[in-house]
């Protein structure tokens, strides 16, 4: 089983940790070794959050190396660009088309880079960059709070694992009242990837 490294980046409250937990669960369900590291900073709202997830036969380091991530899932554009150096040259980046202004920008000290600069940073690493309207897709399927699940569904389509395994992992992870909308959002993402003809 080849090594597969993931980076999931976003802002506090976007559901980065839940998304990366699912990748951990899937690895165990499919008999892989897995390590995961979350970098959360402090407990306040609005800080940057990143999860490193590594699959393989035997995984030592819980942290992904620069240039090592086959997959970069960005729930926010600026944070996606921040982790671009971790993307493998042939890697795949899935970016949610959402901007959340950091305090350095909102207080007037800096400006939020334009899309060309942020997505361009990723495109400089790989041709395989997909920008997704995650919030819109989540809203359209009646699961406005589950953008992270839309993105996970999109990513999952590339990973050659049965859809049922994912839906089951979601069922194990999320509280009952969120289960139905979360699975719906996941499937919306999965279908979006197919629609875009994006899957390999």
């Amino acid at each position: 089983m080849p090594k597969t490294d993931f980076i999931i980046a976003g802002v506090g409250g976007q559901g980065v940790i839940l998304a990366s937990d699912l990748l951990g669960d899937l690895a165990i369900a499919t008999g892989r070794d897995v390590k995961k590291a979350d970098v959360i900073g402090m407990a306040q709202r609005g800080g940057e959050v990143v999860s490193h997830v590594r699959w393989g036969d035997k995984v030592y380091s819980p942290l992904v190396q620069k240039g090592g991530a086959e997959y970069l899932l960005g729930l926010e554009k600026l944070e996606s660009a921040r982790w671009a150096p971790y993307l493998a040259p042939s890697g795949l980046a899935i970016v949610n088309n959402q901007s959340i202004l950091p305090i350095t920008v909102s207080s007037g000290g800096a400006s939020y880079p334009p899309d060309e600069a942020l997505v361009g940073t990723l495109r400089a690493r790989t041709e395989r960059v997909f920008v997704i309207e995650g919030q819109e897709l989540a809203r359209d399927c009646g699961a406005a709070a589950a953008t992270n699940m839309v993105l996970m569904g999109y990513l999952a389509r590339f990973l050659h694992l049965e859809q049922a395994l994912w839906l089951d992992a979601i069922a194990q992870r999320v509280p009952k009242r969120f289960l139905e909308p979360d699975q719906r959002a996941f499937l919306a993402g999965w279908q979006e990837a197919e629609k875009a003809g994006a899957h390999p």
Binding site: E79, P102, T104
Partner: peptide
């Protein structure tokens, strides 16, 4: 890139 430091 602009930093995203924690804040109140």
């Amino acid at each position: 890139l602009p930093a995203r430091p924690p804040c109140l």
